[in-house]
Amino acid sequence: MKFFVFALFSILAINTASATEVAVVDMRAALLQSNAGQEASKAPRSQIQAMEARLNQEKKSVNELIDAYKRDELTLSQELSTQRKKDISTAQSKVRNMEAQMQRKAQSLEQAVIKSLLPKGEAALKSLIEEKKLDLVLNRQVTIFAAQSVDITAQLVEVLNKGE
């Protein structure tokens, strides 16, 4: 078993040693920062802004309920106090659900934009790889460390923008 692990590391080390031109890229960021990404994100952004406005209105309503309860707390009967606490709890739960739903919707909309732009992004990345004669391109999110000089995300955005 130890021999197998040693052999695997040796093969990886040999392959890595022969890769001389390495780069990292944040494909998601490049796609969203490109002109096409900015244009494709307009409609989803307006949907998210509308959801945020509704969420903020609900949060304001919850805060008003809490303020009214605090103001009237000492004069309320036990059962009315219990009912108001229940109403506040229900409203807070509704806000949390709205917030979670908004986050899921935002992620879904972003993924749809990225999915629609991915073929164009992959083609642009391929041309950049050929132009720079890169041997290895790593995803920025899975890289522990990479010097800024090997990050080609900005260059990919430029290639995407030129290709429009």
Rank of each mutant, 00 (worst) to 15 (best):
K85P: 04
A29M: 10
L136C: 00
V137Q: 01
E130H: 06
R54P: 04
R104K: 12
T143R: 00
E164W: 01
V25K: 06
S93A: 10
A154Y: 03
P119A: 15
L8G: 12
A36M: 13
A68Y: 05
S10F: 14
M102I: 01
M102D: 02
Q38S: 13
V62R: 12
Q57A: 15
I66H: 02
K42I: 14
K120R: 15
A43E: 09
I152M: 03
M98G: 10
R28N: 14
N15P: 00
A23L: 04
K120Y: 08
M102Y: 03
F6W: 13
L138E: 01
M27I: 11
A50I: 04
A13H: 06
A123S: 11
A146F: 00
M102A: 08
D26R: 12
V22R: 13
E39W: 06
N63W: 00
T143D: 04
P44K: 15
F3P: 02
E158C: 00
K162E: 11
L136Y: 10
R104P: 00
Q101F: 08
A123H: 11
L65N: 03
R54C: 08
V62W: 08
A23N: 05
F6T: 12
A112G: 13
A106R: 12
L31R: 08
R140A: 12
A68Q: 10
L160D: 07
F6C: 09
Q148D: 13
D87V: 07
Q38N: 10
Q33R: 14
R96D: 07
K132I: 02
V113R: 00
F145V: 05
V62P: 08
M102F: 06
R104F: 05
Y69M: 08
E79P: 03
F3H: 11
M98R: 04
R54M: 15
V157T: 03
R140F: 07
V62M: 10
L80E: 12
A7G: 07
I129H: 00
A17N: 09
S81A: 15
S127M: 09
R96W: 01
L55N: 04
E79R: 14
I11T: 05
L80A: 15
V159K: 13
T82L: 14
L109S: 11
L134N: 06
V159E: 01
I114A: 14
Q111H: 11
F3W: 04
D72W: 09
V150R: 01
L31T: 01
L138R: 01
D26N: 08
A112S: 15
I144E: 00
I14N: 04
Q57N: 11
P119F: 14
R96Q: 07
E110L: 11
R28S: 14
A40P: 06
D72F: 06
A112V: 04
T75H: 11
S10E: 04
D67I: 02
D67H: 14
K126I: 00
A36I: 09
N15V: 11
L138K: 00
Q101K: 10
G37K: 07
Q83Y: 09
A53C: 09
N97E: 05
R54H: 13
Q103G: 10
L156I: 02
Y69D: 06
L156V: 01
Q101L: 14
Q107W: 00
L136I: 03
L125H: 04
F6K: 15
S116H: 07
A40G: 15
S116L: 00
R96V: 06
Q78P: 02
Q155K: 09
E58T: 13
Q141A: 14
A53Y: 11
E131C: 01
A19N: 09
A17E: 01
S34Y: 15
L65G: 01
A146S: 10
V95P: 01
E164R: 03
